[in-house]
Write a protein that binds this DNA or RNA. Structure first.
Length: 154
DNA sequence: GCCAACGTTGGC
DNA sequence: GCCAACGTTGGC
Protein backbone atom coordinates (compact mmCIF):
# COMPACT_ATOMS: atom_id res chain seq x y z
CA UNK A 1 0.00 0.00 0.00
CA UNK A 2 1.22 3.49 -0.83
CA UNK A 3 0.62 6.64 1.12
CA UNK A 4 -0.23 10.10 -0.06
CA UNK A 5 -0.94 13.60 1.09
CA UNK A 6 -3.73 15.60 -0.49
CA UNK A 7 -4.43 19.25 0.18
CA UNK A 8 -7.81 20.85 0.41
CA UNK A 9 -8.87 24.29 1.46
CA UNK A 10 -11.29 23.67 4.32
CA UNK A 11 -13.41 26.63 3.26
CA UNK A 12 -13.98 24.71 0.04
CA UNK A 13 -13.97 21.12 1.25
CA UNK A 14 -12.91 20.05 4.74
CA UNK A 15 -12.46 16.74 6.52
CA UNK A 16 -15.91 17.34 8.01
CA UNK A 17 -17.34 17.67 4.53
CA UNK A 18 -15.67 14.41 3.57
CA UNK A 19 -17.09 12.72 6.65
CA UNK A 20 -20.55 13.96 5.72
CA UNK A 21 -20.47 12.74 2.14
CA UNK A 22 -18.37 9.63 2.75
CA UNK A 23 -16.78 9.62 -0.69
CA UNK A 24 -15.86 12.47 -2.98
CA UNK A 25 -14.56 12.55 -6.57
CA UNK A 26 -11.38 14.64 -6.40
CA UNK A 27 -12.30 16.99 -9.23
CA UNK A 28 -10.43 20.05 -10.35
CA UNK A 29 -6.78 19.05 -10.13
CA UNK A 30 -5.15 20.85 -13.04
CA UNK A 31 -1.50 20.23 -12.36
CA UNK A 32 0.26 17.55 -14.36
CA UNK A 33 2.44 16.25 -11.57
CA UNK A 34 -0.53 15.89 -9.25
CA UNK A 35 -2.53 14.26 -12.00
CA UNK A 36 0.25 11.80 -12.69
CA UNK A 37 0.35 10.75 -9.05
CA UNK A 38 -3.38 10.03 -9.15
CA UNK A 39 -3.33 8.42 -12.56
CA UNK A 40 -0.17 6.35 -12.27
CA UNK A 41 0.41 5.87 -8.57
CA UNK A 42 -2.83 5.49 -6.71
CA UNK A 43 -4.52 2.19 -5.95
CA UNK A 44 -7.81 1.65 -4.11
CA UNK A 45 -7.09 1.31 -0.41
CA UNK A 46 -4.04 3.58 -0.39
CA UNK A 47 -4.06 5.85 2.66
CA UNK A 48 -4.15 9.62 2.40
CA UNK A 49 -3.17 12.33 4.86
CA UNK A 50 -5.95 14.87 4.41
CA UNK A 51 -4.31 18.27 4.66
CA UNK A 52 -6.04 21.59 5.27
CA UNK A 53 -4.28 24.36 3.36
CA UNK A 54 -4.74 28.09 3.16
CA UNK A 55 -6.35 28.28 6.57
CA UNK A 56 -5.62 29.56 10.05
CA UNK A 57 -3.85 26.41 11.24
CA UNK A 58 -2.69 24.53 8.17
CA UNK A 59 -2.00 20.85 8.79
CA UNK A 60 -3.16 17.26 8.59
CA UNK A 61 -6.78 17.10 9.71
CA UNK A 62 -7.68 13.50 9.01
CA UNK A 63 -7.15 10.26 7.17
CA UNK A 64 -8.76 9.30 3.90
CA UNK A 65 -8.31 6.52 1.42
CA UNK A 66 -8.25 6.05 -2.31
CA UNK A 67 -11.76 4.80 -3.03
CA UNK A 68 -11.67 4.13 -6.76
CA UNK A 69 -9.37 3.46 -9.64
CA UNK A 70 -8.31 6.52 -11.62
CA UNK A 71 -10.84 7.76 -14.15
CA UNK A 72 -11.35 10.92 -16.23
CA UNK A 73 -12.36 14.02 -14.28
CA UNK A 74 -15.87 14.72 -15.61
CA UNK A 75 -15.60 18.46 -14.96
CA UNK A 76 -13.09 18.81 -17.83
CA UNK A 77 -15.90 18.01 -20.31
CA UNK A 78 -18.45 20.37 -18.75
CA UNK A 79 -18.56 23.80 -20.43
CA UNK A 80 -20.38 25.14 -17.40
CA UNK A 81 -17.70 24.09 -14.95
CA UNK A 82 -14.88 26.25 -13.63
CA UNK A 83 -12.67 23.28 -14.44
CA UNK A 84 -13.77 22.93 -18.04
CA UNK A 85 -10.84 22.25 -20.36
CA UNK A 86 -11.65 22.89 -24.03
CA UNK A 87 -8.55 20.95 -25.06
CA UNK A 88 -9.89 17.76 -23.49
CA UNK A 89 -12.29 15.34 -25.13
CA UNK A 90 -13.95 12.10 -24.08
CA UNK A 91 -11.70 10.29 -26.52
CA UNK A 92 -8.60 12.03 -25.21
CA UNK A 93 -9.22 13.08 -21.63
CA UNK A 94 -6.52 15.22 -20.15
CA UNK A 95 -7.32 15.10 -16.43
CA UNK A 96 -7.72 12.03 -14.25
CA UNK A 97 -8.89 11.72 -10.69
CA UNK A 98 -9.76 9.20 -8.01
CA UNK A 99 -12.56 9.09 -5.48
CA UNK A 100 -11.45 9.90 -1.94
CA UNK A 101 -13.13 8.11 0.96
CA UNK A 102 -13.41 9.21 4.56
CA UNK A 103 -11.51 7.13 7.10
CA UNK A 104 -10.98 9.21 10.22
CA UNK A 105 -10.98 12.73 11.54
CA UNK A 106 -8.04 13.36 13.84
CA UNK A 107 -8.87 14.65 17.34
CA UNK A 108 -6.80 17.69 16.51
CA UNK A 109 -4.99 19.00 13.46
CA UNK A 110 -1.34 18.00 13.20
CA UNK A 111 -0.16 21.48 12.33
CA UNK A 112 2.35 22.34 9.66
CA UNK A 113 4.33 23.89 12.49
CA UNK A 114 4.43 20.56 14.37
CA UNK A 115 5.39 18.76 11.17
CA UNK A 116 8.20 21.23 10.53
CA UNK A 117 9.40 20.68 14.08
CA UNK A 118 10.11 17.02 13.30
CA UNK A 119 11.24 17.65 9.71
CA UNK A 120 14.68 16.20 10.46
CA UNK A 121 13.01 12.84 11.16
CA UNK A 122 11.05 12.95 7.92
CA UNK A 123 13.95 12.97 5.49
CA UNK A 124 13.11 15.34 2.67
CA UNK A 125 9.39 15.54 3.14
CA UNK A 126 7.91 17.19 0.04
CA UNK A 127 5.38 19.21 2.02
CA UNK A 128 7.99 21.17 3.93
CA UNK A 129 10.27 21.77 1.00
CA UNK A 130 10.39 25.47 0.38
CA UNK A 131 7.93 26.75 -2.14
CA UNK A 132 6.15 23.48 -2.65
CA UNK A 133 2.66 23.95 -4.04
CA UNK A 134 1.76 20.45 -5.14
CA UNK A 135 -1.71 19.46 -3.99
CA UNK A 136 -1.15 15.72 -4.31
CA UNK A 137 2.13 14.15 -3.25
CA UNK A 138 3.52 10.79 -2.21
CA UNK A 139 4.42 10.15 1.41
CA UNK A 140 6.65 7.34 2.63
CA UNK A 141 5.33 4.84 5.14
CA UNK A 142 7.77 6.24 7.69
CA UNK A 143 6.61 9.81 7.14
CA UNK A 144 2.99 8.73 7.34
CA UNK A 145 3.51 6.89 10.62
CA UNK A 146 5.55 9.64 12.23
CA UNK A 147 3.03 12.32 11.40
CA UNK A 148 0.12 10.29 12.71
CA UNK A 149 2.09 9.60 15.86
CA UNK A 150 1.93 13.34 16.53
CA UNK A 151 -1.85 13.10 16.50
CA UNK A 152 -2.04 10.12 18.79
CA UNK A 153 0.11 11.32 21.66
CA UNK A 154 -1.41 13.47 24.42
C1' DG B 1 -3.89 41.12 2.08
C1' DC B 2 0.95 40.42 0.82
C1' DC B 3 4.15 38.27 -1.78
C1' DA B 4 7.60 34.43 -2.85
C1' DA B 5 7.66 30.44 -5.44
C1' DC B 6 6.76 28.27 -9.39
C1' DG B 7 3.89 26.14 -13.26
C1' DT B 8 1.94 27.52 -17.68
C1' DT B 9 1.33 30.20 -21.76
C1' DG B 10 2.46 32.23 -25.92
C1' DG B 11 5.24 35.47 -28.78
C1' DC B 12 9.25 35.33 -31.13
C1' DG C 1 12.93 26.05 -27.78
C1' DC C 2 13.70 30.28 -25.01
C1' DC C 3 11.97 33.08 -21.65
C1' DA C 4 9.06 37.12 -20.07
C1' DA C 5 4.58 37.71 -18.55
C1' DC C 6 1.01 35.98 -16.15
C1' DG C 7 -1.81 33.30 -12.90
C1' DT C 8 -2.13 30.45 -8.87
C1' DT C 9 -0.85 28.53 -4.46
C1' DG C 10 -0.54 28.91 0.21
C1' DG C 11 2.08 30.39 4.42
C1' DC C 12 2.37 34.24 7.03
Amino acid sequence: MRHWLMKSEPDEFSIDDLQRVGTEPWTGVRNYQARNFMRDGMKPGDRILFYHSNTKVPGVAGIAEVASKPYPDPTQFDPGSDYHDPRASREAPRWMLVDVGFVEKLPEVVSLEAIKAIADELDDFALVRRGNRLSVMPVTAGQYTRILKLARRS
